[in-house]
Write a protein that binds this DNA or RNA. Structure first.
Length: 274
DNA sequence: TTAAATTCCTGTAAGC
DNA sequence: TGCTTACAGGAATTTA
């Protein structure tokens, strides 16, 4: 599913394909995917706007329009964005089609419909709580282990739960949470507030490394994630623990444990992670 | 304020 | 083969 590395890859792929192009028409829409404003205002807001830039914040894709407004996409679990020729067959579960000034189309497809689409001025979306306030970017060089330590201090929830909390750090999901905790050799069920400063620094490095590796490998296609060209990523082949419950730990060879934590399947090594 | 549970949604796979 | 059921999970919402 799309987490920080996947969304980063998609943003980088779409940038050269879409920057400078104008949205001529919003051709079809599954209205319930739109979270703000209502579907008609959403359509009207995108129409005739030029896409000036594309960026990422957490797991959100931000299309910066020439009106100084944003077209915001969260891919949920199965969301996909595709740039297609005008006559490309419409895939099932396509919920939005934007026709561009050169005839190509930007299509949003989402089997499980957990994704969300928004439109508006960034400050307003934040102020009106249409977009959540997100924690720091874990790959930002200015984000330090001490910052993470301060974020976790006093919290009693398991570490895994807080890594998934977008207000603590932005962009981490189930895959990279498990990978990071394994790399840092820390148990996912440790109460977050009991982490030492030293361990927090190790965790920050592990987060940085696993996310950067994910970006370098163009994301993890464990489910139906596809990049901005419709291609699979390679990171799923490099994952150390995610999806490998019961298989040997890459480090000690003992079988990897599977538990349920924060409502999520969690894989870790009872021997290597303390 | 925090933490845990519930909800949304459909494809896939397991079980009978 | 065909049916039912469990499961996958991001995050908003609800409950405690």
């Amino acid at each position: 599913m799309p987490e920080l590395p996947e969304v980063e890859t998609i943003a980088a792929d779409l940038r050269p394909q879409l920057s400078g192009h104008r949205i001529e028409r919003v051709e079809s829409l599954f209205p319930r995917m739109v979270r703000h404003p209502d579907a008609e205002l959403f359509k009207a807001g995108l129409r005739e706007r030029r896409i000036e830039a594309i960026s990422r914040r957490g797991k959100y894709l931000l299309f910066h329009l020439d009106s100084q407004e944003l077209f915001v996409v969260h891919l949920g679990m199965t969301g996909q964005l595709r740039v297609t020729a005008p006559d490309a067959p419409l895939e099932t579960h396509t919920h939005l089609v934007l026709r561009l000034d050169d005839g190509r189309q930007l299509r949003y497809r989402d089997v499980r419909r957990f994704g969300r689409l928004l439109f508006g001025v960034e400050e307003e979306l934040l102020r009106e709580r249409r977009l959540p306030r997100l924690g720091p970017e874990p790959i930002d060089p200015n984000f330090t282990g001490d910052d993470l330590y301060r974020k976790l201090r006093g919290r009693r929830a398991p570490l895994k739960a807080l890594l998934l909390d977008q207000a603590v750090v932005a962009g981490v999901g189930n895959i990279y949470a498990d990978e990071s905790l394994y790399r840092a050799r820390i148990r996912p069920d440790r109460p977050a507030g009991r982490l030492s400063r030293k361990s927090a620094r190790r965790l920050r490095e592990a987060l940085h490394d696993s996310l950067q590796l994910g970006i370098a490998n163009r994301g993890s296609s464990v489910d139906d994630y596809r990049d901005g060209f419709g291609e699979r990523g390679r990171q799923q082949e490099e994952l150390l623990v995610y999806g490998r419950g019961g298989q040997p730990c890459p480090s000690c060879g003992r079988p990897l444990a599977v538990v349920r934590l924060a409502g999520r399947t969690t894989v870790f090594c009872r021997h290597c992670q303390r």
